[in-house]
């Protein structure tokens, strides 16, 4: 559905990427990594400085207006609904632009607005909505004409856990109907849950592209825990820890979260002694990137 051949543009450095039909690809990276640039290139809003791009088999810049009803692009800076329109007016314009019959559209609107819960503020002007409310309506607007390809830039911003869950559900249902999705996010925690593939961008380079499982298995998540002990020091030899060090009454240890959970460690410690302070640090995107960069060649 989307094909990048050696594409360079702004921060992006010779990106090659192929997104097959029916995949849900999560584009992850820190801000400035080139996520939005890649999204804009795929959507035909930017032309590459070098390399070639095919979206649905065609150059998206040359064919800008020819197949727009098959693609839906939502970029945070470019809302689909006008600020001054009410939500339902905005949707009515979309209906009219994409030439969808009234009865079909009403059905879809009802379903989407109920699930993304924006039906109750349908008659509010978009500018009066909160960020989260607006995002839910925007996601509805991006989905309502049932595109073959959905491109979402940072759809998670402003969404609460429930809305994120609904978004994931909607995407997987549409995936079943053959829709391909490319969505970007800096949210490492929730995106892999709703995506079948992950593309990881760092400083304009694609440092990882593959299935979510392969990312997980390649990358062993090491958490670190710091404990402050009251009383005698516990014996930690029975726990499958990667390493630990004791410094006075402070213990710091690291463990693989696939092998042992924080609760198990704490239970063992508490059985033996009292603890006054616990803190756990999970690896973040930065650690993941540096880890992947360190062993980059393995993934190509």
């Amino acid at each position: 559905m989307i094909n990048f051949e050696n594409v360079s543009c702004r921060v992006l450095k010779s990106i090659s990427l192929n997104i097959p039909k029916g995949e849900t690809v999560g584009l992850i990276g820190k801000s400035g990594a080139g996520k939005t640039t890649l999204i804009k290139l795929a959507g035909g809003l930017l032309a590459p400085e070098s390399g070639r791009i095919f979206t649905l088999g065609k150059d998206p810049v040359e064919n800008r207006n020819l197949y727009r009803e098959k693609i839906s692009v939502f970029i945070a800076g470019t809302p689909l609904l006008c600020r001054d329109d009410t939500v339902s007016q905005g949707f009515e314009i979309i209906r009219s632009v994409y030439g969808i019959s009234k009865s079909d559209f009403a059905k879809r609107y009802e379903a989407l607005s109920a699930r993304l819960s924006f039906s109750k503020y349908g008659s509010e002007p978009v500018k009066n909505l909160s960020l989260g409310e607006r995002m839910r309506a925007e996601i509805g607007a991006a989905l309502i004409y049932e595109p073959e390809l959905l491109i979402l830039d940072e759809p998670n911003i402003g969404l609460d856990e429930n809305a994120k869950f609904v978004l994931g559900q909607l995407l997987s249902e549409r995936r079943g109907a053959g829709m391909t999705t490319l969505l970007s996010s800096h949210d490492m925690a929730s995106v892999p849950k709703i995506c079948s593939r992950i593309a990881l961008l760092d400083k304009g380079e694609l440092v990882f592209y593959g299935s979510t499982e392969s990312l997980r298995s390649r990358y062993t998540p090491t958490n670190t825990m710091s404990l402050k002990i009251e009383g005698r020091l516990p014996d930690l030899e029975d726990l499958p820890l990667e390493k630990y060090s004791i410094n006075g009454s402070a213990i710091s240890l690291s463990y693989n979260s696939n092998h042992v959970t924080a609760a198990e460690i704490l239970r063992t410690v508490l059985r033996q002694t009292a603890v006054s302070k616990v803190s756990i640090k999970k690896p973040d995107l930065e650690d993941l990137i540096s880890k992947l960069r360190g062993s980059k060649n393995e993934f190509y």
């Binding site: 809003l45 800008r64 197949y67 727009r68 470019t78 689909l80 994409y98």
Partner: peptide, 21 residues
Amino acid sequence: SGSFDRFILRPRGLLFQIIFV
């Protein structure tokens, strides 16, 4: 403001949208 991107993303003539929006 980026609104022009929205026009580009819609399957209607650009000038048509600019004129009537």
